[in-house]
Design a protein around this nucleic acid. Structure first.
Lengths: 110, 110
DNA sequence: TACATTCATCGCAATATTACGATGTATTTT
DNA sequence: AAAATACATCGTAATATTGCGATGAATGTA
């Protein structure tokens, strides 16, 4: 159906899946890398850095904002985007704790 | 179009996006949590643990195998699934290094 | 051999995602 | 006021994803 049955999973699982979506497209990875590497906000040059149409970049930015991992502050005539530190940290912990689960209890099976 | 322009991004970006897809659906998060928490392989009970049809679970397992993060060892009449440690570690480093990029250089902008 | 068990795959329907041109909305500049 | 700049949104087309019933393939069991 293309529709995810979110109601049958835990809040935590749905949230982690949503956070993962932020990284689940190379264009969004590129955007997040740019924002994370710069020490300041990126104001507008995002479209220039990516070989995608302005409308497409805007759509990816919208999705990242929906997830909450970035924020856009209007600073006419431009908009300044930057990482939302709180959500970034949330992602760090969410991925970290899941990915560390295995690292410690590993007991080579199969 | 629904088709990602993978050719315009780096190998690294495409790989990270692919690894993220493993976590980008709550059912796959649930599967990976089960596999990571158990100390041994999970042989077949996966369908019982999830409120999804067998065909659907099988499809998610196929996607996880394509990404490489799990492996399925045939052990008739069952198949034993477990985390692929190498790829799991790859994901840990990939997410870790990106998510840590910001943590150290943070300089509150906006 | 016939049957049951376990899992993969096929085929379908519904929805989601990706991409982009065109257009709309503010705001600044001339 | 008119034009330019920067970005969002709309509409559309193409492809991908999600989910499931039905069916197929492989192995073990009666």
């Amino acid at each position: 159906m293309g529709v995810t049955k979110t109601e049958i999973f835990t809040e935590q699982q749905n949230r982690l899946a949503d956070l993962a979506k932020a990284f689940a497209h190379p264009a969004r990875v590129a955007i997040l890398q740019l924002l994370a590497q710069k020490k300041a906000c990126v104001c507008g040059d995002l479209v220039d850095e990516l070989p995608l149409a302005q409308a497409t970049v805007s759509q990816h930015l919208k999705e990242l904002k929906r997830i909450g991992i970035i924020q856009g502050d209007i600073n006419p005539p431009r908009v300044c985007y930057c990482i939302n530190e709180t959500v970034w940290e949330e992602a760090r912990q969410a991925f970290g704790s899941l990915l560390d689960t295995f690292a410690v209890t590993t007991t080579g099976c199969c």
